[in-house]
Computed example of a mutant assay.
Amino acid sequence: MSMDATTTSTASGTPMPTEWRDFFTLTKPRVMTLVIFTAICGVLAAPGSIHPVLGFTAILAISMGAGGSAVLNMWWEADIDAGMKRTMNRPLPGGRMRREDARDFGIFLSAVSVALMGVAIGWLAAALLALAIVYYAVIYTMWLKPRTPQNIVIGGGAGAFPPMIGWIAVTGEVTAMPILLFAIIFFWTPPHFWALALFVQSDYAKVGIPMLPVVAGEKPTRRQIWWYTLGLTPIAIAPWAIGGTSWIYGMTAVTLSALFMWLAWPVGQRMRAEVDTMLPEKKLFKFSIYYLFALFAALVLDRVAAYQGWIA
């Protein structure tokens, strides 16, 4: 199809031909990277062992569940995405796919992921995966996000499930460690996301999404970023404090959390800044991603070191 034909079809309201890339895009692959990584870390860091095939199956199920909930998120928010600069070219607002197809794809991925987890791994892990999907696709996307500026605080639980599910897939039980892994991501989400929201708040305001910077203003948002960062620190260190890890993870958590606070402090102290001068906010957002990757990588390294007998 020529460029002119594509443009004409879009303008007339007829969806353009859908490619496999569009279905893949609906699963939010960039976000999925972090989800899959933390899930893998949960599997690898858990005590005990799991057959490699079953371990792979658990990660596959978590990935499919996360992808399915992301697809349902995009299906529900297609009209909102069309009004935001950073999301207007996604498959649905871009006219490359029917909304019904996206909805059915999301339901299919979600259902298969839970069934696969239940049959191959266990129904406790499957129940938690189902809860994570509903949490993101329904509780956060359909209920919290359009109604309250605390949407990302409560809704942050959706992204906190993967390492917990990965851990429980190996151990088959809920203990303090997987709960702490959940809590780390839960408390990490607000400062991570609000740092982004500060420099894209005009997009949210335009489509009527009550993100904290839009509803309460920059000053309260900045203060909340600082306080959540401060609260995250002892939680990140807690796995070491309760004896669940060695000094390898502990020192990594202390160092990374100190850097997180160092970067969050100037963001919290600024009263207001123009979008094009928000370098501290952008630095904090970028570092927050590295923070979570490094923290969970340290968790796995700690487990490997203990298994190899490198540490007592």
Score class of each variant (00 low, 15 high):
Trp226Met: 04
Pro52Gly: 02
Glu173Phe: 12
Glu19Trp: 15
Gln150Thr: 15
Phe199Lys: 03
Cys41Gln: 04
Met16Gly: 03
Ala137Lys: 10
Ala127Ser: 15
Ala264His: 00
Arg223Lys: 13
Met16Thr: 12
Leu92Gly: 06
Asp101Gly: 07
Leu292Asp: 10
His51Gly: 03
Ile36Met: 04
Leu279Gln: 13
Ile289Lys: 03
Gly55Phe: 01
Glu274Lys: 10
Asp4Gln: 12
Ile225Thr: 00
Pro213Asp: 05
Val138Ile: 14
Phe187His: 12
Pro93Cys: 13
Asp203Met: 04
Gly231Trp: 08
Pro146Val: 07
Thr148Arg: 15
Ser69Thr: 02
Leu92Met: 15
Tyr140Trp: 04
Ser202His: 06
Met177Pro: 04
Met278Cys: 04
Pro234Lys: 08
Lys286Ala: 12
Ser2Gln: 08
Phe56Arg: 09
Met117Val: 01
Met88Phe: 05
Phe37Met: 08
Met211Ala: 11
Met117Ala: 01
Ile289Asn: 09
Ala298Tyr: 01
Tyr204His: 05
Ala120Phe: 15
Arg30Asn: 14
Thr57Ser: 12
Ala46His: 05
Ala39Asn: 06
Ala125Cys: 07
Trp167Val: 08
Ala137Pro: 07
Val254Asp: 13
Ala137Glu: 09
Leu129Ser: 10
Trp265Arg: 13
Asp81Gln: 09
Leu230Cys: 03
Val304His: 14
Trp123Glu: 12
Ile209Cys: 11
Gly122Ser: 10
Ser202Asn: 11
Ala11Asn: 07
Ser63Ala: 05
Ala312Glu: 02
Ala305His: 02
Asp22Trp: 08
Leu44Trp: 02
Met64Cys: 13
Arg98Phe: 03
Pro266His: 03
Leu263Val: 02
Met271Gly: 12
Trp226Lys: 00
Leu230Glu: 01
Thr10Trp: 11
Ser246Ala: 14
Ala11Glu: 06
Trp310Val: 11
Gly65His: 05
Ala102Pro: 09
Leu292Tyr: 06
Met261Ile: 04
Ser49Met: 08
Pro52Glu: 03
Leu256Arg: 14
Ile165Ala: 01
Gln308Phe: 12
Pro162Phe: 00
Val267Pro: 00
Met177Ala: 06
Leu299Thr: 07
Thr10Lys: 10
Lys219Tyr: 03
Thr252Pro: 01
Met251Glu: 13
Met271Ser: 08
Val207Ala: 14
Thr245Trp: 14
Phe182Leu: 04
Leu109Arg: 02
Gly94Cys: 09
Met84Cys: 15
Phe260Met: 04
Pro146Thr: 09
Glu218Tyr: 03
Pro163His: 01
Thr57Pro: 06
Pro162Ser: 00
Ile165Asn: 02
Ala258Glu: 13
Arg98Val: 04
Thr171His: 05
Leu124Phe: 02
Pro149Gln: 08
Cys41Asn: 08
Ala169Leu: 14
Leu232Trp: 11
Pro280Asn: 06
Ala127Gly: 15
Thr10Asp: 07
Arg96Cys: 02
Phe56Ala: 12
Glu274Leu: 06
Ile237Glu: 02
Leu181Gln: 06
Gly243Met: 01
Ile36Lys: 07
Val31Ala: 04
Thr245Val: 10
Ile59Met: 09
Ile36Thr: 11
Ala70Gln: 05
Trp75Gly: 06
Arg99Ser: 04
Val112Ser: 11
Arg103Gly: 11
Thr27Ser: 11
Leu230Ile: 09
Val35Thr: 07
Glu100Pro: 08
Gly231Ala: 09
Thr175Met: 08
Thr175Leu: 08
Phe287Arg: 00
Ala297Tyr: 13
Gly95Ser: 02
Pro191Lys: 15
Val275Ser: 11
